[in-house]
């Protein structure tokens, strides 16, 4: 199967300002890819390149096996711009129908169904829509023609928690039907539950691509174990993956890197009365692993 996105050495300069440098990335069909990075990292730049809104300075990009310049390729994509602008006296519903016609026809029932899910009012003039309500219209237009590939630039921006849930539910349906999604975000927490892989851009460079499952294994977890009697510290020292160990009487506190297996087995030799394990914070991994590139490459060398 051909990759949905194939980028090779993709580079974009805005004049002398760097937008994106040397991006090489493949996204496979059926994958949900979370694209993360701080402000100004180059996320929007990447997504715009994939849609031929802007043109690469260097490098190659193919989407759905073709050149995004071809209208035929773009008709198979749903796009939510990061800075969605909707204005004018036109009613949202009218605009959606217009977009649907250009994309080869979208049944009115489909638009209504999505509007209902997002609780979007389609009879409002677009200039009178609030930010979040604009975002809903943006989501509806991206999903309504059931495209093979969805490119969503900060899709949850401005949405209230209920609508965010609905959006995530919609994403899961999309994943189930085998379609592909590329979505950008600032925070991992927002995408980790639906993404298969995440990539991180920083200063225009893709600094890491990780499997979310693998990332979970790397997760730093704080664990507290309480026993019915004091335990010897020696039993817990030197266990693989265990760091910051503190043994105080009948209590053991530590953080673990990756699997808790060794720790659990060591603990099983005593009587455990209580265990506290904080949810792994993937965000923290990013901060520790990728807070700067130097540290990252140092880690790779030692590994």
């Amino acid at each position: 199967m051909t990759a949905v996105v194939q980028a090779e050495g993709l580079t974009k300069y805005y004049g002398r300002r760097r937008g994106l440098e040397d991006l090489t990335l493949d996204i496979q069909p059926g994958e949900i890819f979370g694209y993360l990075g701080p402000n100004g990292a180059g996320k929007t730049t990447t997504l715009r390149l994939l849609l031929d809104v802007i043109r690469p300075t260097r490098g190659l990009v193919r989407v759905l096996g073709g050149d995004p310049r071809e209208p035929g390729v773009r008709s198979r994509i749903g796009y939510l711009p990061g800075e969605l602008a909707l204005e004018g006296r036109e009613r949202a519903g009218e605009y959606l129908r217009f977009l649907g016609r250009i994309r080869g026809g979208v049944p009115a029932s489909r638009i209504d169904e999505l509007a209902e899910r997002f609780e979007a009012d389609l009879s409002v003039q677009m200039r009178k829509l609030s930010k979040g309500n604009k975002q809903k219209i943006g989501l509806i237009q991206a999903f309504m023609h059931e495209p093979e590939f969805l490119i969503l630039d900060e899709p949850t921006g401005g949405l209230d928690p209920l609508v965010q849930q609905e959006f995530l539910a919609l994403l899961r349906e999309v994943r189930k039907s085998g379609r592909t999604v590329l979505m950008s975000s600032h925070v991992l927490a927002e995408v980790e539950n639906v993404s298969d892989r995440v990539g991180i851009v920083r200063d225009g460079r893709l600094v890491a691509v990780e499997d979310v499952a693998a990332l979970r294994e790397k997760a730093v977890r704080r664990i507290e174990l309480h026993f019915d009697a004091p335990v010897p510290a020696a039993d817990f020292q030197g266990l693989p993956g265990v760091r910051d160990l503190r043994v105080e009487g009948a209590g053991v506190r530590c953080t673990i890197d990756g699997r808790p297996d060794a720790l659990i087995k060591a603990a099983a030799r005593h009587t455990v009365v209580h265990i506290v394990s904080a949810e792994p914070d993937l965000e923290e991994i990013f901060l520790t692993y990728y807070s700067d590139e130097e540290q990252h490459s140092a880690r790779q060398e030692s590994a």
């Binding site: 715009r48 849609l51 031929d52 809104v53 209208p71 035929g72 773009r74 008709s75 994509i77 796009y79 711009p81 800075e83 969605l84 602008a85 909707l86 204005e87 977009l99 250009i102 994309r103 080869g104 237009q141």
Partner: peptide, 14 residues
């Protein structure tokens, strides 16, 4: 300038 053209150029129209 207002940003509405971005979505329009991503439509399947040459």
């Amino acid at each position: 300038e207002s940003g509405t053209l971005e979505l329009v150029v991503t439509l399947p129209v040459d």
